[in-house]
């Protein structure tokens, strides 16, 4: 099913990128957790009253007084959407379309490995690296919270929030992986893999500003991940289910198209 030699090579080729993203997340997560202070929350609430649209655009709506509300608003409205997304865009492109674009895919296919095995290995690598990033990120935030504000974080609820985040990134990485698998050039791969998620996020920013623009939330994948309602209703699994379905469809159609298409190597 999978080729472990190739998997190991991808580990070696991508661990630096992975560590950079872990580092950046560690930096922001520790800073945000450190900033938590019930009094500061009130101050930020006042900011939100003064300029509601700007704060809303970045998903920072209701700054609650609990640590989980604070963290979900400041980390899960922008930073944990953007950074893993950039990671997915970069890694997805490196896993498939870069090899095709440069021609080195020929080296991989000139071995007794089926195309399906190669692409399945790359898809698995994409998913596992994303899974590791989210797990490490979750563990880091829990660790920072426990260090600075012992037992202030509602850990079970926080885990549910992160499972939903994983679902969102599974779907986004599906877009990136699909783009990388179907494109014959890195340019086209980036247009699909970066263009679509970024467009979705811009639509989300507009939709967050409310008013007439609110209907735009139906045109973006990001409205399937709403931290506030996840915390309110942790049992509602419908958005997570839809995100996973999107991810599965995109990954599998990327794999199927890659198996069938002409490779100009």
């Amino acid at each position: 099913m999978l080729n472990f030699t190739l998997f190991k090579r991808e580990l070696r080729a991508n661990y630096v990128v992975f560590l950079i993203f872990v580092g950046v997340l560690a930096l922001y997560e520790s800073m945000i957790v450190m900033m938590f202070d019930p009094q500061l929350g009130e101050m930020l609430d006042q900011f939100a009253k003064v300029m509601p649209q700007i704060m809303a655009a970045f998903g920072m709506v209701s700054v609650g007084s609990t640590l989980i509300e604070f963290v979900s608003s400041y980390l899960y409205g922008f930073l944990l959407l953007m950074f893993p997304m950039i990671f997915e865009i970069i890694v997805a492109n490196r896993l498939v379309s870069r090899y095709v674009d440069r021609g080195s895919m020929a080296c991989l296919l000139a071995t007794p490995n089926k195309r399906s095995k190669i692409i399945l290995t790359q898809a698995t690598f994409m998913f596992l690296s994303l899974l590791s990033l989210i797990i490490i990120s979750t563990a880091m935030t829990i660790a920072f919270s426990e260090m600075m504000f012992p037992s202030a974080l509602d850990i079970p609820k926080f885990l549910v929030l992160n499972v939903n985040l994983l679902g969102l990134h599974f779907a986004i990485s599906g877009i990136c992986f699909f783009g990388s698998a179907v494109a014959n050039s890195s340019k086209l791969s980036y247009s699909i893999g970066a263009g679509i998620p970024i467009a979705f996020y811009l639509i989300q920013m507009l939709a967050n500003m409310g008013g007439k623009l609110e209907d735009l939330k139906y045109a973006t994948i990001f409205s399937l991940f709403d931290p506030a309602s996840i915390l309110k209703e942790p049992g509602n699994l419908m958005p997570l289910f839809i995100l996973c379905a999107i991810g599965i469809i995109l990954y599998s159609s990327g794999i199927l198209i890659f198996n069938k298409k002409d490779l100009s190597l």
Binding site: R9, A13, Y99, R102, G103, S104, A106, C107, A110, L265
Partner: peptide, 11 residues
């Protein structure tokens, strides 16, 4: 197989 234009994993 030896490709006409050789491209390896440059890293």
């Amino acid at each position: 197989y030896l490709p006409g234009e050789i491209a390896f994993m440059d890293d």
